[in-house]
Design a protein around this nucleic acid. Structure first.
Length: 466
RNA sequence: GGCGACGUACCCAAGUGGUCUAAGGGGGGGGUCUGCAAAACCCCUAUUCGCCGGUUCGAAUCCGGCCGUCGCCUCCA
């Protein structure tokens, strides 16, 4: 079986057929860097991370682009409110985003382009649309996309353009469009707002424009996969398709993937409910980023994820189960005796688990099923360890665990013992050899205070970081 | 009003026509192992999938109605 994905545009699940298997392009709508990202934002980014990791694990060289929106109304407002320029403001929040992303083990994208650093590309796109008379200029110098000139408009969101005239919410903006449905490509310069002098006039780009321009800049006029939150389907992605395809005459994106929203205890996350959980706040309060990652990837991307007070404790407990298994495998691999025992059974368990895991990921990124494969491997592996499975068997299990973790990224990193811990561990081994349990227990407590959990099993003492 | 999604155990969450008397994680109860602790393993914790009808040899899965929750309908991941 190969990768199957559910495409928003066609509404179909179908085999992933890259334009060029040697160079798969993924574009994900990234953050607007004017404040801290919340867990809902990161649910969507981590979904894209899993997609990219799975593509790479499947042998597709993949280029991942995540844009940073660094010019828009909210940013302008924030910069005025704080009395600072836009650049230092967005630099600050870009740093927070990168830090959050790294903590949550999001793969670093190959490109993190900023809208303000790709003005030329955006202007070129608008120029093409003007030449084709699909875009028009209003009296103040703003430029709009003429929806009436693009019959396919509404195909992604399954909206009827005609119906959109009815019950329209008249925007309280000061731009004069030909048609209320038309969306802005270029906003004419206004007093007190940032603006660029360009061949299409002085102004700044509209929101949708940057994603079309930058995705095509890094991935080509047609590329494979485009991701985002479900709320971006309309108007953002609808507009991206319209302006891109109208400009190039080519199909813009092969497969559209949209991530459902995260709810908090059954409610929408919103300012009025005061239930917005920011990643940086959670991390600052001592939340284990691995546990947060697990909590955010544990539901299938197309279903709403309910984040509750139990989510993090549950994820933490699940993670400890994974950690304990990894530590037990390491301990067994260090034991030379019984090396040949149960090796075949371990190899079968490992390959069965991997096949199930891979089939799950191929099935439209069925992470819950992939996690089930992981936890069943852990149970079966623990059984084999109890049965005396040898070092070679433990190695086979460990190899599969690591292979899965290249996708899930949940295992502890290269374990670095706190200073002094190695000596304490040595001393404890000696104490236990001498049956000095008082000293052994004291050393265990001491190690616990510096974050090293020590457990005793048939393979001797093993440890993991708390 | 239009379009769409969802309702599975105490919590999270898969499954979408038979292998389901429903995966996996957490939590809870019991047991085994063990110097202690922890980890681990075993058993139990939904004969039932919002409610009511229908289709079918057979439905959590399809159809209809009802109840409830939610999303989008111009800048929110």
């Amino acid at each position: 079986m190969s990768l199957q994905l559910r495409d928003t545009l066609s509404g179909e699940r179908r085999p992933f057929a890259p334009i060029d298997p040697k160079r798969v392009g993924v574009y994900s709508c990234g953050p607007t860097i004017y404040g801290p990202a919340h867990i809902g934002n990161f649910r969507s980014f981590l979904f894209a991370d899993l997609l990219v990791r799975w593509l790479r694990a499947s042998g597709y060289p993949t280029t991942w682009v995540v844009n940073l929106t660094d010019i828009d109304d909210k940013i302008i407002r924030a910069s005025k409110a704080e009395g600072i320029e836009i650049r230092p403001l967005t630099d600050r929040w870009e740093a927070v985003f990168r830090s959050d992303a790294a903590a949550l083990r999001m793969t670093t994208p190959d490109h993190l382009p900023r809208a303000t650093e790709h003005i030329d590309e955006q202007v070129n796109l608008v120029t093409k649309l003007l030449e084709r008379e699909i875009a028009y200029r209003t009296e103040d110098g703003s430029i709009f996309f003429r929806i009436a000139a693009w019959p396919a408009y509404g195909k992604l969101a399954r909206l009827d353009p005609e119906a959109m005239r009815v019950g329209e919410r008249v925007e309280a903006d000061e731009y004069t469009k030909d048609d209320v449905r038309d969306f802005v490509l270029w906003k004419a310069a206004k007093e007190g707002e940032p603006a660029w002098d360009t061949s299409i006039g002085r102004g700044r780009p509209g929101w949708h424009l940057e994603c079309s321009a930058m995705s095509m800049r890094y991935l080509g006029e047609s590329f494979d996969l485009h991701t985002g939150g479900i709320d971006l389907i309309f108007p953002h992605h609808e507009d991206e398709i319209a302006q891109s395809e109208a400009a190039t005459g080519k199909s813009f994106v092969g497969t559209w993937l949209h991530c459902a929203h995260l709810h908090v205890s059954g409610d929408k996350m919103s300012k009025s409910l005061g239930n917005i959980a920011r990643v940086s706040d959670l991390l600052a309060s001592g939340v284990d980023p691995r546990a947060l990652r697990l909590a955010l990837i544990s539901a299938h991307y197309r279903t709403a994820l309910n984040y509750t007070d139990d989510s993090l404790p549950a994820a933490t407990a699940a993670l400890e189960r994974i950690d304990a298994f990894a530590a037990a495998l390491t301990a067994r691999r260090a034991v030379a005796a019984n090396a040949a025992e149960r090796v075949d059974a371990a190899k079968v368990a490992a390959s069965t688990a991997w096949d199930r895991f891979a089939a799950a990921m191929d099935d439209d990124l069925a992470v819950p099923e992939a996690l089930a494969a992981l936890f069943d491997l852990i149970r079966e592996g623990n059984r084999l360890l109890v049965d005396g499975c040898g070092a070679d068997g433990a190695s086979a299990l460990a190899a599969t665990l690591e292979r899965m973790d290249a996708v899930l990224a949940l295992l502890p990193g290269a374990s670095e013992l706190p200073s002094g811990a190695a000596q304490l561990l040595e001393a404890r081994i000696a104490a236990r050899a001498a049956k000095d349990f008082a000293a052994s227990d004291r050393l265990r407590d001491e190690l616990a205070t510096i974050g090293v959990l020590v457990e005793d099993g048939r393979d001797g003492q093993r440890w993991r970081l708390k």
